[in-house]
Computed example of a mutant assay.
Amino acid sequence: MDTITHTLFGLSLYAAVDKKRFTTNEKRALLLTTVVGSNIPDIDVISQWWDTAGRYQMWHRGITHSVFLVPVWAALLAVVSWLLFRVKDWKLFAMGIVAVFIHNTSDLFNAWGTGYLEPFSSIRVTFGTIPIIDFVFWIIMLAGWLLVRYKRNVSSSRVFKWVWVLMIVHLISQSVQGYVIQNQYAKQYDEFALSAGFIPGQFQMIGKESDKVSIHNVTVFSEPKLQVELKSDESVSLDKLFAENPEAKTLYEWSPFIVVVNDDKHIGIYDPRFYRNGASFLYEKIDK
C-alpha cells in the first residue's frame, strides 16, 4: 500500500483503542506505536542511497517486510516509547505487532508484493487483489472519522472497530473474487498474474503462453475483455542486458514473468503487470 494508506491504518488503530483511562504519555506512546509501526517496514527506501548494484527493486519490500521481523520492529517501538515517554506496557508491544503485521500483510495483496518469508525464501509473495492505492479503504476510514466528528455521544473506539471490520470484509471480498478468477482462467496459461483495478471487483489478468502475453479486463460477473496482446522475444540472450544494466537482472528475478523486447534500437525487459498506455512502469533496457 502507499504511505498515506499505511499512515491512515495507524491512525485508525489508534482510534480503535479505548483511551479513557490513559495518561497523556500513554496516549503519545500509543500514537507513536501505531503510526510509526504502520510505516516502519518502508524504512528500506533509504537503501537507494547506497544502491550501486541495481538491487533496490529486491531490497524494497524485502527483509524489512518479513513476517519474521514483526516482533523485532515491535520491540524496537516499545524501547522508543520507554525512552521518550517512560511508558512500559506489554500492550504497547502487542499493538506494535498488530501495526507492523498489518503493514506487511496488506502489502501482500497488491501486485508489488513483498519478501514476506525472507530470509528463508526470496520469493515475492503477491496476490494482486487490492490496488496499491485502495480508495475503498480511504472512504471507510473517512466515514468513520466523520461519524465520530459530527455525531454526538458516539464512541470513537467502537466506531473504528467497525471500520476495521468493514475493511477486512472488503479485503476478503476482493480476494475471494480474485481467487475465483484465477481458479477459472489460470490453467489456460503457462504463467498467470492478477492486478486489481481501482474500482472494486475489476481486475486485470495477465497471462503468458509461450512467447505471447495477453492482458484482459475481467470481473467474476463478466467474460474477459482483451486489452492488448504482447509479443515476447524468447530467443534473445539476456546476458549482455544483465551485464550492462544490473537493474534488468534484478527486475528479471523480481517479476513473476517478463516480456522481452528486441527491436532495432533496444534490448530490454518489462513487467507486463504494470503495462499501461503502451508502456510498462517497470522497464529496463540497453541500446544496441
Rank of each mutant, 00 (worst) to 15 (best):
V80M: 13
W82T: 04
W82Y: 15
W82K: 10
L83E: 14
L84T: 12
R86L: 13
R86D: 15
V87K: 00
V87H: 04
D89R: 10
D89Y: 05
D89H: 05
W90A: 06
L92H: 06
L92S: 01
F93R: 07
A94H: 03
M95S: 05
I97N: 12
I97T: 08
I97S: 06
V98Q: 01
V98F: 07
A99P: 11
A99D: 09
V100S: 00
F101T: 09
F101H: 09
I102A: 02
N104I: 05
T105N: 07
L108M: 12
L108I: 15
L108Q: 12
N110A: 11
A111T: 13
A111H: 01
W112S: 13
W112I: 09
T114S: 08
T114C: 08
T114P: 13
G115T: 11
Y116R: 04
Y116N: 09
Y116T: 13
L117R: 06
L117S: 01
E118P: 01
E118N: 07
S121D: 15
S122D: 14
S122T: 10
R124Q: 10
T126V: 15
F127K: 07
F127M: 12
G128Y: 00
T129R: 06
I130P: 07
I130T: 13
P131Q: 05
P131S: 12
I132Y: 07
I132W: 00
I132K: 09
D134W: 03
W138E: 11
I139Y: 11
I140C: 02
L142N: 05
W145L: 14
L146V: 14
L146C: 14
V148T: 14
R149F: 06
K151A: 07
R152I: 06
N153F: 04
N153C: 04
V154N: 02
S156M: 14
S156I: 06
S157A: 13
R158A: 14
F160P: 01
K161Q: 05
K161D: 00
V163T: 11
V163P: 03
W164V: 00
W164A: 04
L166S: 03
V169L: 09
V169D: 06
V169C: 15
S173Q: 09
S173R: 02
S175T: 15
S175C: 11
V176E: 04
V176Q: 02
G178I: 11
N183W: 10
A186R: 09
